[in-house]
Write a protein that binds this DNA or RNA. Structure first.
Lengths: 241, 241
DNA sequence: TTAGTTGATGTGGTTGGACCACAGGCCTAG
DNA sequence: CTAGGCCTGTGGTCCAACCACATCAACTAA
């Protein structure tokens, strides 16, 4: 057992047992090193790992913002991991997109019309109406889709959606350059977004799922990916009637 | 920009540009430190992070197995991250199970009968027939479900399935103790597994998805989780007809 | 000649100490 | 009462050294 893993186990134990909760502060690195009878280096390596996983946040200085505190940001962890494995060509972009369609269409079919996240999505939609630049539009588009995922009320799906999006963000950005007519595309995306929201508020989950699948795959098809043929939503799509 | 992040960027760049591929060896820590003009400590912190993400593997000694080499194990990264966030109570077990049902039923609906992974699943099924102990049975069960996910041919879904499984492995193991009659449960699980395989080889993806959803939710319901009401497979289940 | 031993070499693993930058709180001089 | 500087504690970085380990080459003894 390597030393830093001992520290990892200790911290995970503190989290599991509830002695260290969200927002709580870890002992100072030097204190923790002495407490666990290891070097500060090993403590720092463990903290680095947990920081990369979105469990801790280290802040210098004094005061309430300083020290190493517990946070909860599963998206960054999953996103970084996915991005790196995409870099090693172990995870094809095609599979990323396919999985995104699967998760997001499920989320759309499950989204509760009364969810605050859905209201947020509607708000974002209005902002997109008065947004001409592609870059700002796409930024709002990301937030819209994340809000849509949140509306399903499943934290794991939300986190995975966010991480998938992050993993291929650069890729999607480059694809935008392939579009022949951005204004036309933007208009179509706007209409499709409205259709999705309408289906959800009409309690037609199947229709919403189908629209989401078409929406995502249509974008990538137009921009030139070629998502691999066939609807990734699979049975979810067929159920919409 | 913190120093170890510089090292992270450099390594990620090497991966993206293909100068560092799967199985390739990173320069020695001391050499890399000198190359990037940083301390060995910072290099090590970066390596630790990538190691936790399943991108690198560090080995002491000399020879082909030694040094820091590039691997591709997205499952550990996602699994560790999910497990930790479950520990902080930020990701409910209910959502984990729900997401697993979603992914696995989709995988079942997409599994290709001629896939090698499916043959592996069938092989595991035979082994489970001659397996009395609960622990060994569950170990085979895990591998069976992972093989099922692999048969869909989506690396991202496979990785996520594995990580979800890892994140709640301890939890599921504890649940097993709640079962009133293990032998009866094992017999039922065996029958359900066979039904799933049959549906896939019969090219009835919808049926396979439905059976998988029932299989997983049935287990957790019997063991006492209470998966939160309703089929998580949502539209996927309804499509089986 | 061959088999076994032994040392050199290079790898990651770990440690202690030192110094820096930063941010808040305290104390003193005005 | 205020403004400035000092004190303290935090993480951030670096260095030098040592250890454990695994391989390989040279050497030695049969």
């Amino acid at each position: 057992m390597r030393t830093h893993q001992l520290v990892l186990q200790w911290i995970e134990g503190q989290l599991s047992s509830g002695q260290l909760a969200l927002g709580g502060r870890l002992p100072a690195e030097r204190s923790l090193a002495e407490l666990l009878q290891v070097s500060r280096t090993s403590v720092r390596e463990a903290i680095r790992v947990l920081e990369a996983m979105g469990v801790l946040r280290a802040g210098v200085g004094s005061g309430p913002d300083a020290g190493t505190v517990v946070i909860a940001d599963p998206t960054t962890a999953l996103g970084s991991a996915l991005r790196l494995h995409v870099a090693t060509s172990h995870l094809p972009v095609k599979d990323i997109v396919e999985t995104r369609v699967l998760l997001e269409s499920w989320a759309a079919s499950r989204a509760r019309p009364e969810s605050p996240a859905l209201a947020e999505a509607a708000r974002l939609l209005e902002q997109m109406d008065s947004c001409a630049e592609a870059e700002a539009f796409l930024a709002l588009d990301v937030r819209f889709h994340l809000a849509l995922a949140d509306a399903a009320g499943n934290a794991v799906v939300s986190a995975m959606m966010g991480s998938l999006r992050e993993a291929i963000q650069d890729y999607a950005g480059r694809l935008t350059g392939n579009l022949p007519d951005w204004n036309a595309t933007a208009a179509r995306l706007r209409a499709e977004h409205r259709g999705i929201l309408t289906a959800i508020t009409s309690h037609d989950g199947g229709q919403a799922a189908q629209l989401v699948a078409d929406h995502i795959e249509g974008f990538y098809a137009e921009a030139g990916l070629g998502s691999g043929g066939g609807s990734a939503s699979g049975p979810a799509g067929r159920s919409s009637g």
